[in-house]
Amino acid sequence: MIRRLRHISLWTALTVSLSGALYSAAMLYGIRQDNDLIRQLMSGKDVAVNKVIGGEPELRLARAFYFKQKHRYDEALSTLSLVMDKGDQKFQAKARYNLGNLYLEQAIQQAKAMNINEALPLTGLAKQAYRQALALDSGNWDAKYNLEVAMRLLPEMDRIDMPDEESKNQKSQLWTTVPGFPRGLP
């Protein structure tokens, strides 16, 4: 009886470990395929959308990278926005840094074309993205540098409170309390 049990358990263990090996091998193959796609995107060749849709966030990040290289900013932005809160902290910091670069590059282009109204909000968004990236990974020197570029482009000033603000208020209050002219009697 014990021999029979041992025999059965040996076969079960063999089946389980072999299926584990098969699963790991399949995973390795999948990772290899995805890495090939990432390399292809980085070398400047597009891949089919359906391969990216169900895939890992790294694939989308690679596709956004590709779009940015080709100056297709809107598509890059929509792709990046899908992976913002995916992956681990390091990955999120990377995604936010790339998002900052995306905004800043557009802001610089708009500023060059003297479209200041478009450039200002874009720079603000870039700064916000870099700040978030640095909060996640304070050792990201590229983000530090580019944040400084953005901050020089749109310097931040403390709001200066005018010392005579209060007296102005008082004056305006005075005016509102001045009574109108009395109506004459009929």
């Binding site: 584990g20 090996a21 699963y23 790991s24 091998a25 995973m27 390795l28 990772i31 290899r32 995805d34 890495n35 990432i38 390399r39 995107l41 980085m42 890992e56 790294e58 990040l61 690679a62 990278f65 940015k68 290289q69 990955f91 990377k94 840094y97 790339n98 670069n101 800043l104 590059e105 610089i108 020197w141 590229d142 983000a143 540098y145 580019n146 570029v149 482009l153």
Partner: peptide, 21 residues
């Protein structure tokens, strides 16, 4: 304007799968 370039997307890590295999 000189900017630092985009950070290249990371390749997927396969160490976990290798360990499993």
């Amino acid at each position: 304007e000189y900017l630092r370039p985009d950070s290249p997307p990371p390749l997927l890590a396969n160490t976990q799968a290798w360990y499993g295999l």
